[in-house]
């Protein structure tokens, strides 16, 4: 009796930590997250609104702020759909067919994640800048890519390049190709198969990739900073506008504009959690490639 009692006691001790250890671990974890995530997130809004709504609105109604918002929306509106089409095409080729060099292709698609944002901007300056490969030709034809809007769009596409592809490739690989093969053998056309069989299967993964891609597209700083030229009201995105205001010691305005981006981040996290929740409830799965 006493030995079996002791055994139960032992098991209890060894499969769970003591109350004290549990409490200490939870406290340490929450303190760490509060220090590095909670306080900074709160501070953005506090600094933006701390001097009152009037200053907050004034900062957001500044025409330069508006043109920055406009440019950020334009860049994201081009980069996200472009990378969406690419992601679907790449995932279709990689997941539904067997061909040589596939793993090399997958690694190449991930490349932009390994490149520093500053280097991402630099390579486009080397191509299209005044001293770049295509620089003289572009100047002859009076086309300006660098220190202009097209350059910002190009680097935004580059830094967000892998997001959608890397969500879709593992997802479509896991789903296999039996359903599409069945549709084709029953007489459906290629596009019919894609829209009616593939798209419904991948819609959540697709949305997940779009959410992440969009957040990065709107928030990118380093790469855009290199190609933008920082022309106020012309080639400034929201993050660059924040930098300019901050460097002018206009802190209230800087944090007011920054609070828009912080809101975007919160919306992104919420949308991401909703998709994850839906996927969990549907019993389907998202391959978690969210390592960047």
């Amino acid at each position: 009796m006493s030995s079996s009692h002791q055994l139960i006691n032992n098991r209890k001790i060894a499969t769970h930590e003591s109350k004290a250890v549990t409490l200490v671990l939870i406290t340490v974890a929450l303190f760490y997250l509060l220090l590095f995530l909670g306080i900074p997130l709160f501070a953005v809004f506090y600094e933006a609104l701390g001097k009152g709504w009037a200053l907050y609105w004034a900062a957001l109604q500044d025409p330069d702020a508006w043109s920055a918002i406009e440019l950020t929306l334009i860049a994201a509106a081009i980069a996200v759909p472009a990378n969406l089409v690419f992601g679907v095409a790449a995932a279709w080729a990689i997941a539904k067919f067997e061909f040589r060099g596939k793993s090399v292709l997958i690694t190449l698609i991930d490349l932009p994640f390994a490149v520093s944002p500053v280097v991402s901007g630099l390579i486009y300056v080397l191509l299209f800048g005044a001293q770049g490969w295509f620089g003289p030709w572009l100047q002859e034809h009076d086309i300006k890519l660098i220190f202009a809007v097209p350059g910002i769009v190009l680097v935004t596409i580059f830094v967000t390049f892998p997001f959608i592809a890397r969500e879709l490739i593992p997802l479509m690989q896991a789903q296999g190709k039996e359903e599409e093969e069945a549709a084709i053998s029953l007489g459906a056309s290629g596009w019919q198969t894609f829209w009616r069989v593939t798209v419904p299967n991948i819609k959540w993964g697709l949305l997940y990739g779009v959410i992440l891609c969009n957040a990065r597209a709107m928030g990118e700083f380093g790469a855009v900073s290199v190609v933008s030229g920082h022309i106020r009201g012309m080639t400034n995105t929201i993050p660059l506008h924040v930098e300019i205001l901050y460097n002018e010691y206009n802190f209230v305005a800087a944090f007011s504009v920054a609070s828009l981006l912080a809101l975007l981040a919160l919306v992104t996290l919420l949308a991401k959690s909703i998709v994850e929740f839906k996927v969990m409830n549907n019993g389907s799965r998202l391959p978690h490639g969210e390592t960047e």
């Binding site: 953005v44 957040a215 928030g219 981006l261 969210e290």
Partner: peptide, 29 residues
Amino acid sequence: FPGKRIVDALVDLPFALPTAVAGITLAML
């Protein structure tokens, strides 16, 4: 523990928050 799901979602904040915003906020703090 209470609020665990919110804490879990918040872990991804550095992926979602633009780096410039993180930079000015941390510099100030």
